[in-house]
Design a protein around this nucleic acid. Structure first.
Length: 834
RNA sequence: GCCCCCAUAGCCCAGCGGUAGAGGCAAGCGACUUAAACUCGCUCAAGCGUGGGUUCGAAUCCCCCUGGGGGCACCA
């Protein structure tokens, strides 16, 4: 007995050869032709066709393309190719997100500069994309690691710097010990580094930030524009991330201190129930108050304890509350009550004011703390149970008690009233807070965009003059790149030591590089004009092409990249460089490619190699498999799909083209009407399927048409009928979205000139969409009793009388009187009889 | 703990108020073949996770529960 897999493989090859469908041969045949024709070069400014900007998220060049790329680019391709067929001037560009850590790590290992590894991988990916028949416009390629690109990163940074949107501050930042760099808030997932999964620690550093929080409200408001075009899930994630909370700021006087302490609360109505105050243990305020209260040692000890705990430990939800009394008291501004001030780590230093009023009766965290440290619990919203005994804080709406002027009010009224009271007394006001933090962009690594700032002892932070951009990376390689906790650039003495552009004195360049998310926050604009030497992008072209009509990429970027791009767009709008406020009108998130229920990985041993799949089944079969596997948003389990089946179908479609005997240009109007109706209906439905992202349905429709045409040729009107040619040409055009090699080969077999990609979508004849007859069903009390064919345009009255004349209906009805008759012409008559 | 999404033949999935099925995989049968593969044709199957509600009518809308997936997670 031959080995199963091998046996199957060999016989399949033999069969293909005999049948003549050889995917690999047609790949070799058409690639050079397409290179020549460049069917996807986007039109210029004067192109009369309406524009469509289809954008795939650009890849990071970490080795060759994998199955995930294959899916994403197959899906983006369906959309781009569809709009070309529909007569649009489509721009479908690609580039490389080419800065980043893996290149640097590879360079250290290989004793080289990261450039070589990066460009090798780009070349490999580019070759694979070409083979994979991606419909990219190869004249617009960009690499973010090219000085011609990152020079404009620096320019943009300086614009933000000049507008006060880029600033430097000291703070405790997320530090990944394994990547040896700081991380943005968004790059820390459950206390771990998003990239390497190592535990993240805190470090006090002076770093560059972008003031994204200034745009928090607009980032929220403008989501209204995206409700139609973006997945609800992504909008929800962004809303949660921005985390707007409405509440009030309340000033509490501190005994023995001139300055009051302000707290932020979403429940100012519970102010009368505040029984203590908490300040974040790691805030400067805590240190100050400890000094005032003489509790410096206690505070310092506690702080040390807290610092020793990792973020992961800190985030355990069932963790016991800890804290220390600072020996200071605050005065509740509305009732004059004297309450103790504690420090704890459950209050965050960088959210709100870093201090809270604790209302244990109505906030679970505060209650846990109160019970642990025997602090009083005061109920101010009436409830059946007493939180102090149940241990469960009540957060429901209800009648306020023990609250002076708020007594008897419900929550909404009480909030409104207390804000009035606070305003009158000048001790507080309504306030809004966001969870979103400013974006930390400094990275202590080499392979990124140098921050174009010079530090001068006399002049401070000085912008590098625009005329001196780009600030290029010095040549470093191998061990010089090894992480030392400070940027490798700091050790490049010749590079880092410079003169101050303002005073001409000795000065140092900023040695950090930018987060690579900076690079990808505006790359979609650079595609317009990637070789532009005088501007980041052409403002006129931006008016013409932007916003992106269709963006395709993984949901992994739901927050980071998409939020940053939205932010950049608003900044550019404010600068008057673009005339839109949202960069991506429609967004499609493709799922992942899995194997046996889990993500593929070398360590798991369930890796499916794209190149091997392409070798075994051909490019078209793999593309088809990706598209046909299910809805694009769903994950594809490679165990559930059949590339062999895809290939069989392609061969079947291809054979159709060889059977057609009519000449090119034959008038389809002389063809068989029944087949023409099928063709036009399917073409019509296929267009709808593509436009609503139901690509799997598109494929199913094409299969349907292939089946119908096969039948027409073999046992129907025969291969010479003009309707058969029309059907097969329609198959080729529709298939060109998914399986371009096969489609092109079919097109040629049909006697047409290349290329099928620009053949144009079949004009659907609406007269052919009307069915000859529709089957009508008759229900009696919900049960189907009869069915018969009627004209599709039958009137309701007519249909009703036809139904009642039917033998089966009269029989079923007997002599029962109908109490209600519902007629939905032409498909249904429902008779209710009781 | 909070929020969101999903559940249709053995499997992947269409259908999203009106006859449960578009398509594929798998399975079975037949034709072709010396035989097999390939190809072609035919067949097979679920009553739509559970329970309730709305409706003349529910896979489709609403609520509960179960099971799976995802997001957030001391954000005051």
């Amino acid at each position: 007995m031959p080995f199963n897999g091998a046996g199957g493989f060999v016989s399949e090859q033999v069969a293909d050869d005999r049948e003549g469908f050889d995917p690999h041969a047609i790949q070799e045949k058409w690639l050079p032709v397409w290179d020549e024709l460049a069917p996807f070069r986007s039109g210029d400014v004067n192109d009369q066709r309406p524009k469509k900007y289809v954008l795939d998220m650009f890849p990071y060049p970490s080795g060759d393309l994998h199955m995930g790329h294959a899916e994403a680019y197959a899906l983006g391709d369906v959309l781009a190719r569809y709009w070309v067929q529909r007569g649009f001037n489509v721009m479908h560009p690609i580039g490389w997100d080419a800065f980043g850590l893996p290149a640097e790590n590879a360079a250290i290992k290989r004793g080289e500069n990261p450039r070589s590894w990066t460009y090798e991988n780009i070349a490999q990916q580019k070759a694979s994309m070409r083979r994979y028949a991606c419909s990219f416009d190869w004249d617009r390629v960009l690499n973010t690691c090219d000085p011609e690109y990152y020079r404009w990163n620096q320019w943009l940074f300086l614009q933000m710097f000049n507008r006060g949107l880029a600033y430097r501050k000291d703070s405790a930042v997320n530090w990944c010990p394994s990547c040896q760099t700081v991380l943005a808030n968004e790059q820390v997932v459950a206390g771990c580094c998003e990239r390497c999964d190592g535990a993240v620690t805190k470090r006090k550093l002076n770093q560059w930030y972008l003031r994204i929080t200034e745009y928090a409200q607009r980032l929220l408001d403008d989501m209204g524009q995206l409700e139609e075009g973006w997945p609800e899930k992504v909008l929800l994630m962004q809303r949660n991330w921005i985390g707007r909370s409405q509440g009030a700021k309340v000033n509490f006087a501190i005994e023995g201190r001139d300055e009051p302490v302000t707290v932020f609360t979403t429940r100012p109505d519970t102010l009368f129930g505040a029984t203590f105050m908490i300040v974040a243990v790691d805030s400067p305020l805590a240190v100050e108050l400890a000094m005032q209260g003489g509790s410096v040692d206690a505070h310092a000890n506690y702080l040390e304890q807290v610092r020793a705990a990792t973020d992961i430990e800190r985030q355990a939800t069932d963790r016991e509350k800890t804290g220390v009394f600072l020996n200071v008291h605050a005065i509740n501004p509305v009732n004059g009550e004297r309450i103790p001030v504690w420090a704890s780590d459950y209050v965050l230093a960088d959210y709100g004011t870093g201090a809270i009023m604790a209302v244990p009766a109505h906030d679970q965290r505060d209650l846990d703390f109160a019970l642990k440290f025997n602090l009083p619990v005061k109920v101010v919203v009436a409830s059946d149970e007493d939180p102090a005994t149940t241990g469960v804080a009540t957060a429901d709406d209800g009648e306020h008690i023990n609250s002076g002027p708020l007594d008897g009010l419900d929550t909404d009224a009480a909030i409104a009233r207390i804000i009035e009271v606070l305003r009158e007394r000048g001790t507080g006001d309504a306030s809004v807070n966001f969870r979103l933090r400013d974006w930390l962009i400094s990275r202590q690594r080499y392979w990124g965009t140098p921050i174009p700032i010079i530090h001068c002892e006399k002049c401070g932070e000085v912008a590098v003059p625009e005329s001196e951009l780009p600030v290029t990376l010095p040549e470093l390689s191998g061990d010089a790149l090894r992480p030392k906790g400070v940027s490798p650039l700091a050790a490049a003495h010749e590079w880092v030591n410079t003169t101050c552009p303002t005073c001409g004195g000795a000065a140092k360049r900023d040695a950090d590089t930018m987060d690579t998310f900076f690079d990808s926050s505006w790359y979609f604009l650079r595609y317009l004009d990637p070789a532009n030497e005088t501007a980041a992008f052409d403002v006129q072209q931006a008016k013409q092409w932007l916003p992106v009509d269709q963006y395709v990429g993984g949901v992994t970027h739901a927050i980071l990249h998409l939020l940053y791009s939205r932010f950049f767009t608003k900044v550019l709008f404010d600068m008057g460089l673009v005339d839109f406020t949202e960069p991506f009108a429609r967004l499609l998130n493709q799922g992942m490619v899995l194997k046996d229920g889990s993500a593929m990985s070398k360590s798991r041993g369930n890796l499916v190699r794209l190149s091997e799949e392409l070798d075994a089944h051909g490019v078209d079969a793999i593309r088809l498999t990706m598209v046909f596997a299910g809805p694009p948003e769903d994950d594809i389990d490679w165990a559930d799909v059949s590339p062999t089946g895809s290939r069989k179908f392609l061969a079947r479609a291809w054979r159709l083209a060889g059977d057609v005997t009519s000449a090119p240009g034959t008038d389809p109007r002389d063809g068989d009407v029944a087949l023409r109706k099928v063709t036009h209906k399917i073409v019509h439905e296929s267009a709808q399927a593509v436009e609503s992202y139901r690509f799997n349905v598109l494929v199913a429709r094409v299969m349907e048409l292939v089946n119908a045409t096969r039948k027409a040729i073999d046992t129907g009107v025969g291969p010479a009928d003009p309707a058969v040619r029309e059907a097969v040409e329609a198959v080729a055009v529709m298939l060109s979205l998914v399986a371009p090699y096969t489609a092109e080969e079919m097109w040629e077999r049909l006697g047409n000139a290349a290329t099928v990609m620009r053949a144009g979508w079949l004009d659907v004849d609406s007269a052919l969409l009307v069915a000859d007859a529709v089957t009508c069903i008759v229900q009696i009390n919900g049960k189907i009793r009869d069915r018969f064919d009627v004209a599709p345009d039958i009137s309701e009255a007519e249909l009703q009388s036809v139904a009642f004349a039917r033998e089966a209906v009269r029989e079923a009805l007997g002599d029962v009187q109908p109490s209600k008759i519902i007629v939905r012409a032409p498909k249904l008559v429902n008779i209710v009889a009781s």
